[in-house]
Design a protein around this nucleic acid. Structure first.
Length: 726
DNA sequence: AAGTTGACTTAGGACATAAAAT
DNA sequence: ATTTTATGTCCTAAGTCAACTT
């Protein structure tokens, strides 16, 4: 009632403002032109219905069509906020009390070990390092146990020498990123090695010699023969077009049809090469590793404000065929080989400037301490800049990461007010504000990305919240017994499908319908809204607040809630890890982090089930043995019979323990079929939540974070105890 | 205000290596 | 010991967002 009233008033007062289906952004209107099939004169073709014929947007790439965010996902995960949805069901495998004792003991042991190790590390302060090193060096050539020791020592040494930047007071945030910066520059891609003459390229069945450059590009394609890309028309078209550009005029004259090219010999050759590589001898592998380490040592680090810091990506991207994701119009184009003349070096003024390859010159050497990159270049496919920057364990990245979570925590305190505001705005007289409110609701509740506008035709057709088009949503007054359901179906970042049916409050439902009035599927749902003005608004509410902060905030708060809800104090370690993974999974579902199901997934699951069955049978058998041993013992109370009985009992216990482990594993794997946990763990979850959880429940941090992750989150691990609350 | 560019974070897949199963 | 499977690392594309330009 109320809305009907207000909406008519609105319509009456300023109809265009409300319903104008066209964006007032210039380029948007321009873009719209390209959405129609054009005739030979460049005018939109008219269909039988008298309307212009639309270019059909290909909706789904064949991969990633599964629905995670859908039916049972998001709404269940979220609690306490807009809805009262059920929390994630903790089904099945939880109660493994029988093994408690064993677990406890193991855990104790481990804990003690840990404490020892930690103590050792604490004592091993810098002055001792040299001693350790010199001691270790001569022994490294000796037998394997000593070798192991040195490795461990090296690790400890490394840990001790790591810069604990978080213990220092923060730099003032004045936009200056470094005072001094010195590095070795990028490592160039290895030069092209021509194929042996025994590997023929054939055209139309006949062997054909190719000039090195032509041949090199040919190998890019040949290497991908088994890949899906080569079955795509655009890929082939782009590749062939670009390939012809590097051909000599003679070659170009002959090679006019990709279909007549026979890359198989080359393909085989590279397969053979990689087999060969796999089959290398131990020494060869060792030698190669040493060489690799040497390179890492030389190029992999820089001096940043007098601290040695690890570089994230010191190798320049080698030439290749562009692998755009989803329906990318540029897939298959040649990504060119980079030379010194393409490369900009950034370092401090007095530092030793990295030397370009002999006879070559850098494009530029600059000394810009307001940026964090050491090297940059412009990539030739999309004309975007690429950078060499520091590893995630560096101060500059770590501090920023920390700050990101602090901003998200700040949002936690303000979010109630912000939500109040957007609920109020749902009824605003001004359409732009109403749209903003609905968009914000989606971003907050569904953790959608902001959704910047993107140039049409430059990349795959993907959207986020602000760039949603009408065709991406359907409204259902009633669906599956639920009222006011909005069905989302669109391709997001990386062309990952987002599919979700969400019951929403009536006001949201009405608004969305209102926004869609008089629009076509291809018109923007939020025609009065851009990410930039949304972010400006958010920034006015809270310093540092942008759309993506909601994702971080909701991800982290969800993890914390789920951990609280799911962790069972009486559970085994494996059981707790399952709870952790399930909490992590709830977040991944919320953020729609998907992966392609591992190949042979169903077979693998089948095998896992068989293994479980077998274990159950084994247990049954073992139990029989216990029984008979017991009766043996009853009849002849000998020591040996007693022992036999005891061992049999132990065996059953051991088997049962193994069974539980298998079951937990299988459950975890099944639930994780198409869900990627890594992305949220790495980018959305405040690591301090996990660290605190580990401490609280006596879970070794190694169970949750691997070495790299511990490195990245060293600040959090060092900083927090079990009382930390996000 | 719209459009453009630059810098930085976030993302899934490919590939390599380690661990587990046989 | 060998093969299979799980995990970790590398790679680079694809987003976000703010500053700059027009």
């Amino acid at each position: 009632m109320e809305l009907a009233h207000s909406s008519t008033t609105l319509n009456g007062s300023s109809p265009q403002k409300l319903h104008s289906p066209h964006k007032h952004k210039h380029h948007k209107d321009k873009d719209r032109k390209h959405k129609y099939v054009l005739d030979s004169n460049g005018k939109p073709k008219i269909g039988p219905d008298g309307k212009r014929i639309r270019i059909k947007r290909e909706h789904r790439p064949e991969h990633h069509t599964a629905n995670h965010a859908g039916d049972q996902g998001v709404m269940q995960v979220k609690t306490e906020r807009m809805d009262s949805g059920e929390p994630h069901q903790n089904s099945g495998v939880t109660n493994h009390g029988d093994n408690e004792e064993i677990r406890r003991m193991k855990k104790k042991l481990k804990k003690e070990k840990h404490a020892k190790k930690r103590k050792a590390e604490e004592n091993d302060v810098k002055p001792n390092i040299k001693k350790v090193k010199t001691k270790a060096e001569p022994s490294s050539t000796l037998s394997s146990p000593t070798k192991k020791k040195t490795k461990k020592m090296k690790e400890e040494e490394e840990a001790a020498s790591k810069w604990k930047w978080w213990e220092e007071k923060k730099d003032t945030d004045d936009g200056i990123k470094w005072k001094t910066l010195e590095h070795k520059g990028p490592m160039f891609a290895p030069e092209y090695e021509p194929l042996p003459s025994s590997v023929p390229f054939k055209y139309g069945g006949k062997v054909m010699h190719l000039e090195p450059e032509t041949e090199e590009v040919m190998t890019f394609y040949a290497k991908m023969l088994d890949h899906d890309y080569t079955s795509k028309e655009i890929f082939n078209k782009n590749f062939f077009h670009d390939w012809r550009k590097v051909m000599t005029s003679k070659e170009k004259e002959i090679i006019t049809d990709l279909g007549k090219c026979d890359f198989r010999a080359t393909n085989e050759y590279f397969k053979m090469k990689s087999e060969e590589r796999k089959a290398r001898s131990k020494q060869e592998k060792q030698k190669e590793k040493e060489e690799k380490d040497l390179i890492q040592e030389e190029y992999g680090f820089c001096m940043w404000d007098n601290h040695k810091e690890k570089i994230g990506n010191f190798r320049l991207e080698p030439p290749s065929l562009f692998r755009g994701r989803g329906d990318h119009p540029k897939m298959g184009k040649i990504k060119k080989r980079l030379q010194a003349k393409d490369i900009i070096i950034n370092c401090s003024k007095g530092s030793k400037v990295p030397s370009p390859p002999p006879g070559q010159k850098w494009k530029e050497v600059r000394h810009d301490n307001t940026v964090t990159w050491l090297v940059s270049w412009t990539e030739n496919i999309q004309g975007q800049n690429k950078y060499i920057m520091l590893n995630a364990n560096s101060r500059i990245k770590g501090e920023k990461d920390w700050q990101k979570y602090e901003t998200a925590r700040k949002l936690k305190d303000r979010v109630d007010k912000i939500r109040q505001d957007y609920w109020r705005d749902m009824k605003s007289q001004e359409m732009a504000i109403r749209q903003r409110a609905v968009a914000l609701f989606f971003i907050d509740k569904l953790a959608l990305r902001a959704g910047n506008e993107k140039e049409e035709g430059e990349g795959a057709d993907t959207v986020g919240c602000c760039s949603l088009r009408c065709e991406h949503i359907k409204t259902h007054k009633m669906l599956d017994m639920q009222e006011y359901v909005i069905e989302f179906d669109f391709l997001g970042k990386d062309s990952i499908r987002y599919y979700n049916k969400v019951p929403v409050p009536k006001q949201v439902f009405k608004n969305v319908n209102l926004f869609m009035e008089n629009k076509d599927g291809e018109d923007d749902l939020f025609d009065r809204l851009t990410t930039s003005n949304l972010n400006k608004y958010l920034n006015s509410l809270m310093d540092g607040l942008t759309a993506k902060v909601f994702r971080t905030y909701n991800a982290s708060i969800t993890l914390q809630q789920q951990l609280n809800d799911l962790t069972d104090p009486d559970d085994t370690l494996a059981g707790r890890m399952l709870s952790y993974n399930r909490s992590n999974r709830a977040v991944a579902i919320l953020c729609n982090h998907q992966r392609a199901a591992p190949k042979n997934f169903s077979e693998q699951m089948q095998r896992a089930r068989e293994r479980i069955q077998k274990k159950q049978d084994d247990i049954a058998d073992a139990k029989q043995e216990v029984k008979s041993a017991k009766s043996d013992f009853k009849h002849h109370k000998t020591e040996s019979n007693k022992k036999k009985y005891e061992t049999k009992k132990k065996k059953v216990e051991r088997l049962q323990e193994q069974l539980i482990k298998l079951e937990v594993q299988a459950t975890d794997r099944e639930e994780n079929k198409e869900i990627a946990l890594g992305t949220s763990k790495l980018n959305y979850l405040d690591p301090r939540i996990s660290v605190a959880w580990c401490k609280k429940w006596d879970v070794p941090i190694e169970k949750v974070y691997n070495k790299t992750q511990r490195d990245k989150f060293a600040w959090a691990i060092a900083m927090v105890d079990e009382t930390y609350v996000f």
